[in-house]
């Protein structure tokens, strides 16, 4: 009996050692498989959680819903007016760019995605969405909400994609302070005690000092994030350790701890044949994670 148990433990230990030393392509396939199997179940969980939240909202009172409905109707009218005004500006901009001989920019497409899970371990600031390669989602695409930038896609499987959030220290974004035009690099710093994500912008030019409350937007210099997407607002400005640059703490506008739906920005034309080929090939290019 004791010998059998010892053999079992040795076998399990060897299995774990084998797993730890598998080439990344092997573990990628295993991870893909497990994620694909669990994805429909997580969709179910997400739907259940949403239903529970909606039921709780109804239980809190219909008066609140009516007020919310009225506010959203007003917001819709305001936004329609803004869209109408911006359409004229966009047309004018297109005409001017054409006269100057600039290359025509392709407008990014928005792929709506439901958040189906959060990182299970807790040392990563990441979440998983229910859209993948089959929906034209690829690694290193910007992920946004109506409030602003949320992060970027990382590892993508056929039906799911992992989103690295702005609050993760591995997420670096080239940014610009909207008022001064000063550039910087934003990186995640985790969450505050109130649950709000905290980010830091490094390498801000001292001659273009930002002020508290200044908006921070993407600069578009890193190829991943299109320019001009709102990230958040400056909370604190200080001199960095070298004394050559300024650094600033930024609170993202989007509440990263309560995301339910997000949008993936893509400029690709959707071609199902290419995507099925990509999925079938399962090439190493797909994985963007560690």
């Amino acid at each position: 009996m004791r010998q059998t148990q010892a053999r079992l433990w040795i076998g399990a230990g060897l299995l774990v050692l084998l797993l730890l030393n598998l080439p990344s392509a092997g573990t990628r396939r295993m991870r893909w498989g497990l994620r694909e199997v669990l994805a429909p179940l997580q969709h179910g969980w997400a739907a259940l959680a949403l239903r529970a939240r909606e039921t709780a909202a109804v239980a809190r009172g219909l008066g609140g819903l009516a007020r919310e409905n009225r506010e959203q109707a007003e917001e819709l009218i305001r936004l329609r007016q803004q869209v109408a005004a911006l359409a004229t500006v966009a047309e004018e901009n297109r005409a001017l760019r054409s006269q100057l001989g600039f290359q025509r920019e392709q407008a990014p497409q928005l792929i709506a995605a439901e958040v189906i899970a959060r990182d299970a371990v807790g040392w990563w600031e990441a979440l998983r969405i229910g859209r993948g390669l089959l929906d034209n989602v690829r690694p290193d695409q910007a992920v946004v909400t109506a409030e602003g930038l949320v992060g970027r896609t990382q590892a993508v499987s056929p039906r799911t994609a992992e989103v690295l959030l702005l609050s993760d220290p591995r997420c670096r974004v080239g940014v610009q302070v909207a008022r001064t035009g000063g550039y910087g690099i934003l990186m995640g710093r985790g969450s505050s005690p109130t649950g709000r994500a905290v980010c830091r912008v490094d390498f801000i030019n001292r001659n273009l000092a930002p002020r508290l409350g200044d908006a921070v937007v993407t600069s578009g210099l890193g190829q991943v994030f299109p320019p001009g997407i709102l990230i958040g607002y400056i909370e604190r400005v200080y001199q960095d350790a070298s004394g050559l640059y300024l650094a600033a703490e930024v609170t993202p506008k989007a509440d990263l701890s309560r995301l339910r739906y997000v949008f993936v920005l893509t400029t690709d034309e959707f071609d199902p044949a290419v995507h099925l080929e990509r999925v079938g090939a399962r090439s190493a290019r797909i994985e963007g994670g560690p």
């Binding site: 774990v16 797993l19 730890l20 598998l22 573990t27 295993m30 991870r31 497990l34 994620r35 669990l38 899970a117 990182d119 299970a120 371990v121 040392w123 990563w124 990441a126 998983r128 990382q154 590892a155 992992e162 690295l164 994670g289 560690p290």
Partner: peptide, 16 residues
């Protein structure tokens, strides 16, 4: 293994 698959952690870390 399930915990590893549902995070960005390399496979086998949580299992170990």
């Amino acid at each position: 293994l399930v915990q590893d698959a549902l995070s960005a952690t390399p496979m086998g870390y949580s299992a170990a």
